[in-house]
């Protein structure tokens, strides 16, 4: 097998396995860890997770492709999630998304090496709409005019997709 988990990740997985009656429930955490370590979930990464937890590849594939935060292809270092759901839409969420698209030169769903841009569903920050989340960092009450500054900040302070696992 070409990929290996770091010693730290292996320790985390082993500790988590103690918390459940079998290894299967650890698959989400192991996929988050794999994404953190390898950037995306390639076929090899899914095989590694299956091998580590004694799960069939098909099961790991099924789980990895069900949840929207797991990505099968390489993407940008920081994923910018712009909410456009109802509460954000009512206060200009689509204008914020358009500003990100234009300043990054990306269409929603696309990424370059630094950034991925995602039109996100409700991120539970409705009282501070429009809201944007990147890893552990929230940007609240965002106005399109602030987008350039946010991008500059994120270039200096990247928030990787699975920064906390």
């Amino acid at each position: 097998m070409s990929l290996e988990f770091s010693a730290e990740a292996q320790k985390k997985i082993a500790a988590l396995c103690e918390r459940y009656p079998s290894k299967k429930p650890v698959v989400l955490a192991a996929l988050h860890l794999a994404q953190k370590e390898f950037g995306h979930l390639s076929d090899e990464a899914l095989q590694l997770v299956g091998h580590t937890l004694d799960l069939p590849y098909a099961h790991v594939f099924g789980v990895a492709t069900f949840y929207t935060m797991f990505r099968r292809e390489p993407g940008g270092k920081t994923t910018i999630r712009v909410c456009t759901n109802i509460s954000c839409m009512l206060r200009g969420g689509y204008d914020v998304l358009a500003a990100f698209e234009s300043k990054l030169g990306l269409t929603k769903g696309q990424s370059n090496k630094d950034f991925g841009l995602v039109e996100e569903e409700c991120i539970a920050a409705c009282a501070n709409a429009p809201a944007v989340v990147c890893g552990t960092k929230y940007f609240l009450d965002v106005e399109p005019a602030q987008v350039e500054e946010i991008i500059r900040y994120l270039r200096e302070h990247p928030h990787p997709e699975s920064e906390v696992v």
Binding site: L16, P25, L28, A29, H32, F66, Y67, M69, E121, V165
Partner: peptide
């Protein structure tokens, strides 16, 4: 009594 935080991965 044990408590474990289990993190989802994006699915309403």
């Amino acid at each position: 009594c044990h408590l474990t935080v289990h993190r989802g991965a994006g699915a309403y």
